[in-house]
Structures are given as C-alpha cells and as structure tokens.
Amino acid sequence: MNSEHAPRGEETVRLSSVRKVYGSAALPVLALDGVSAGFDAGTFTAVMGPSGSGKSTLLHCAAGLDRPTEGGVVVGGTDLGTLDETALTLLRRERIGFVFQSFNLVSALTAEQNVSLPLRLAGRRVNPVETRAALAEVGLAGRGDHRPSRLSGGEQQRVAIARALITGPAVVFADEPTGALDTRNSHGVLNLLRDLADQRGQTVIMVTHDPVAAAHADRVIFLADGRVVQEMTREITAESVATRLASLEARAC
C-alpha cells in the first residue's frame, strides 16, 4: 500500500474554532461549538461523548463530508474551506480513508475488487500485486477472490480497512468500526487500527461509544454539548474511560 501520509509527529488534521449549526434561523441546532483540536501522524485518537454530543458531526466536518458553519479544517496541509465541491470530493477520494460500522463493501465484487475500487474511481492504475499485498497486510492473504458473503464480519471490516488505506490517505476515519462485530473480531480490528498508527505512522481518528474500543487509542477526546470538555492521554483503560463517560452522561441527563 502507498505511504503518503505525513511524517510521524507532524500534524495531519487541524480543526480551528469549528462551529456547526443545523436547522433554520428560527430553530437552529448547535452541533459543534468552537471545537479546536489537532491530530498528529502516528497517533490513534478515540472521540467519545454522550448521545448528541457532536461526535459524528466532528467526524463529518473533519473528513470533509460536511462544511462547518464557522471555523476551519486542514487535512494534510490543505484548507478544506478553499475547495469547491469537486475538489473536495477528489481530496476525500485520494487523501482520506473511511471505515464504517456497516463495512460498506460492494456485495457483487470480490475482496480484491473492493480494495481496488477507490483507485478505479480515481482513475488510477490498479496493480494486482499491490492490492493483494494490502489484503495480506490486514491478514487476508489468499482471500482476495472471496465475495463479502463468504467472509465473516471481522474479515469484511479488514477488507474495508485495506480499501481505506490503498490510496495512501493522510488520515483514516473510523466510525464505530466494531459496532457490528463480536468481541473476538472487535479485538482483531482494534489491534489492526492500533498497528496502523504504531507501525505505519498512520493518523487514525475513531468515533466510538465503547470504552473497550477507546482503550486501544493513545488519546481520548470527550465531547459534550458540541464542545471538547475532557481529554485523556495517560492511563487509558476501559474502566477509566467508562468512568469519565458515565460522568458526562450523568451531567447530560
């Protein structure tokens, strides 16, 4: 797989005073309220918070899926606010990787074809050797000719991770990547995301509600009412994350 992301320790994503308001002028809904945060290459960050805290909105704005009402987002040195919709689509396709809870694989395509799909959409040459190497890197050597129906949930998510990495993205966004998996497969996928940061120097940003999943990260950002209210970078365990999250949820009630 390509390795075009930033050198380890260099900031890959930066949100600056990001506000996002949905709804009408008469009935505005404030989803993000002045969020500023940076994410370095070689780091694995979990984003958590009570329901309605702004987790998904943060991911959508940071990934260029939605435009902030105010503030700025920079990905891989590019200010997303300077791009028109066509340029933004191209940047997402080439510089941002996505991993979703529902895998989002094309059922009629093989694993190898699913992995190479972003390259085909970008009009780039597909190298079968590179595609097979991507599958091998996520533990699926020899499974490239299998369609999703012949793969377990954990294997499908591994295909999705290989697909997210094939273009050499600046950052990989994972939205509840273990939400549809059992404990064993969840553990495997989380270890793989951890390895992406540790071994490849990849920037990984994961939205999750699961303290066990968040404990695999080296940084946990907590949102409440659209703001960053807490952050953990030391002694991150499932128990410590669960305690912080429970405290925020109690305040939200």
Rank of each mutant, 00 (worst) to 15 (best):
H209T: 08
R147G: 07
D40P: 01
R124C: 04
V126M: 10
R194L: 06
D210F: 09
D175C: 13
V220C: 11
S186T: 10
G42K: 05
R8H: 05
V171E: 01
L117Q: 03
A170C: 09
Q113A: 15
L32T: 13
T12E: 06
V172W: 03
E176R: 05
A174S: 10
S3M: 11
V138S: 06
E10C: 00
R150L: 09
S149L: 12
G142R: 14
A214T: 13
L223E: 12
L193D: 02
L223T: 12
A62M: 08
V47H: 05
V171A: 07
G77C: 01
N191Q: 14
A170K: 15
L140A: 13
A108Y: 07
L181H: 07
A136C: 05
R147K: 15
G142P: 05
R132V: 00
A134Y: 02
G54L: 07
L32C: 10
A160K: 06
D210C: 09
A6R: 14
A242S: 15
A214C: 06
V29H: 14
S3H: 06
G226P: 13
A246D: 11
V220H: 09
L88Q: 04
G142M: 12
I166W: 04
P118H: 06
K55G: 10
A162K: 07
R125N: 02
P28E: 13
V207T: 08
G54A: 11
V229C: 14
H209E: 06
L80W: 02
A26G: 14
E176I: 07
T110H: 01
N2T: 01
T57P: 11
D218G: 15
V21A: 02
E70T: 14
A37N: 04
S36Y: 11
S17D: 12
A134C: 02
S116V: 06
L192Y: 03
L59S: 01
D225I: 03
A46I: 07
F173Y: 15
P28I: 08
S3W: 04
L223N: 10
E85Y: 02
H209F: 06
L119A: 14
V75C: 00
N127E: 12
V13M: 00
D40M: 11
T86S: 14
A63Q: 05
S240N: 14
G168N: 07
R227Q: 15
L90C: 02
S3D: 03
F103I: 14
S36A: 09
A224M: 15
A197N: 09
T167H: 08
S186L: 11
A217M: 14
G9I: 10
A141F: 11
L27H: 10
R251W: 02
D182S: 03
R158E: 00
R125L: 10
R244A: 12
D182G: 08
D40I: 00
D145C: 00
L193R: 04
G201H: 01
G52I: 07
I161F: 08
L196G: 04
L135S: 13
C61V: 15
R234W: 00
R158H: 07
E235R: 12
E155A: 14
